[in-house]
Design a protein around this nucleic acid. Sequence first.
DNA 1: CATGAATGAGTATTCATTCAT
DNA 2: TATGAATGAATACTCATTCAT
Lengths: 208, 208, 208, 208
Amino acid sequence: MPAGRRGRRPDPDRTARRRGEILDAATRLFAERGYPDTDLDELASRLGVGKGTVYRYFPSKEKLFFAAVDRAMQRVLEAVNARVAGETDPLRIIEGAIREHVAWFNANPWAAELVIQERAQFRDRPKPTYFAHRDANLEPWATLLRGLMAAGRLRRMPIERIVDVLSEMLYGALFIDYFARRRRSLKRRTEDLLDVMFHGILAPGGGR
Amino acid sequence: MPAGRRGRRPDPDRTARRRGEILDAATRLFAERGYPDTDLDELASRLGVGKGTVYRYFPSKEKLFFAAVDRAMQRVLEAVNARVAGETDPLRIIEGAIREHVAWFNANPWAAELVIQERAQFRDRPKPTYFAHRDANLEPWATLLRGLMAAGRLRRMPIERIVDVLSEMLYGALFIDYFARRRRSLKRRTEDLLDVMFHGILAPGGGR
Amino acid sequence: MPAGRRGRRPDPDRTARRRGEILDAATRLFAERGYPDTDLDELASRLGVGKGTVYRYFPSKEKLFFAAVDRAMQRVLEAVNARVAGETDPLRIIEGAIREHVAWFNANPWAAELVIQERAQFRDRPKPTYFAHRDANLEPWATLLRGLMAAGRLRRMPIERIVDVLSEMLYGALFIDYFARRRRSLKRRTEDLLDVMFHGILAPGGGR
Amino acid sequence: MPAGRRGRRPDPDRTARRRGEILDAATRLFAERGYPDTDLDELASRLGVGKGTVYRYFPSKEKLFFAAVDRAMQRVLEAVNARVAGETDPLRIIEGAIREHVAWFNANPWAAELVIQERAQFRDRPKPTYFAHRDANLEPWATLLRGLMAAGRLRRMPIERIVDVLSEMLYGALFIDYFARRRRSLKRRTEDLLDVMFHGILAPGGGR
DNA sequence: CATGAATGAGTATTCATTCAT
DNA sequence: TATGAATGAATACTCATTCAT
């Protein structure tokens, strides 16, 4: 054993596991109570550790919260990517992504809560985590859309139009879903969204 | 002097004006700082009145906030109704309503802020003010849509599908608009929305 | 009509009546809620007048309270004096005074409440109203006692001993009565007090 | 190092000592200023600790106050019991108890203050602490009195009569003592009380 | 005289963060 | 490394009093 090294060595696995446990509990609590009503004291006792320990892993309540949001956003993306992994038809990829996005937030409403909380409590953040992640993952989707358009399967329009409107729909759906206490089934709402997104509401020639 | 009670009489005009002034200033402050960071003490000094005066007009910070949200929501509806007042073609009415909704929130971003704040700080409210107002005003729009569908100008689909997806788009647009710091022009984004809403993204026959 | 005098003359009767009404309502409220929880706003509305009016008759909440206590103390003394007015036997006068004191506070528990409140809220008042009144009325009673002692009907002892112990009994009775929620009848408790006061608890020769 | 939980362990001794110190200082302050004028902030600075520390030991101002009253009442009873511990003659036990009660409150006037404050500020408490403690300790005294009566040393009368009148005397004495700023010596007043309690004021045959 | 709108000093309590052990 | 005792800034609301009308 080299001189000068005493005591137990830091165990990176243990550390990572601990971090994850804290993040899990914090996520649940932030979503349940909202950011301001979440008490780090309660978090610590739920975890069965001291408050100081939480502070060893995250330097402040704020940072802990951001870490929670960040991880949540990673998870949606992972879920979406996993869902479309086997698909080859680009249109089915788009469709699958939409379905998964709606379904995932529906199954994980706490994530929507985190997104709201972040926006409400930290109004001055340059870019909310949700969009940071979305933008970082945009390019492959844009490529996909360009391909479909070139193949004549999508109407000719700026790619941004699709991306933006789709974002609005999904983001709106995510919020309305969670807090307007909707009564229609997840399946039906997904069909609504896909149908309008793909075909619009006008009948052929109905515009005039 | 008229018989009956003596002394300084309450002046309803003055009272209403005062209430309005307080509400204006409160709205601005709540939107600027967020609910928790808004100090009624500061509100009072901005208005040049004592804290107690604010409490004469609104019994609590919470009630004041709800009054502010409520008034904001009334105003969007008024703006939308005013915009479509002269229209006769039902499709143009729909279109006008969408345009105004997007434009109004774009011009009054503080209103979007209030909507978010309400949701984030009062998680347990049965129905957020935005939806309460929307639902109270839904019927005429549903009638309009039914008419258009009967006339063959809209594709046959459940009315709810249109209402829901449109809500999602508008609500999503309202949020994204305000806090994703979008770079594309209001006009272009409105066209995007209308185009996709009306025609969808698929080319004819593109689904297969 | 002399020049220089305009308008309605102050009407002393009306003024006194008004003062009395305010004092009545204030007394009730102070006794019900305690001094700190009595709201002059509520007092005014119960009376159907404006807050300002109360201030025309009493310069401050404190002064109003003292006036209420003072009037209450006058009333006990009046009641006691009225009760013994017809008596001629000095011992019966003493007895009647004790009976009336106990009975009056029992019938007017709010008065005991005022005595307590005064002591608790204004700890630094030189002499509580109750004792001020008592001391101002002490002399005739001392004379009475001296006469009884000279006549051999009371044991020889300092007059102050009787006055002090009797005061303690009465004052103690007044408090215990009101707030220990006693279960024994007024009559029985009065007899207890008189019996011990007059005869003590020892049997003849029981001291040794 | 023993297995199990790491970190700074709670030290029960230290905790108890701290609690006691806070209670001491609080008792003094409540008695000096009265309940409403006692500021926990000032209490903390007097103790040289932060306000939060006080709240660690007592969950509210109210609870702290009740704890102070409660401890005071325990102490009177201890003092009284200690005083009569060596006595064997039951009559001397009674006498000693009375002497100690008067003397203790005379030496600890702050305790009387707490009793008053409790009554005045918490009008609706079912049973003031003073009486709760008294009632919990009543039985041995009743037994003593029954014994004396059976032995012919006390006049035949209901035990309750003695207990009640004695309570009234002591309670009255306690208050008068503290706030009528009496001028006669403690010793003399104790003799007064004992003399009247034991022998009454009437001369033999003086009743008629 | 009478009113009640306006005022602002005053106060209990919470909880993120630090740091002695 | 872990703990939890200690800290103190921060905050909504009440109510006695004043005074314009």
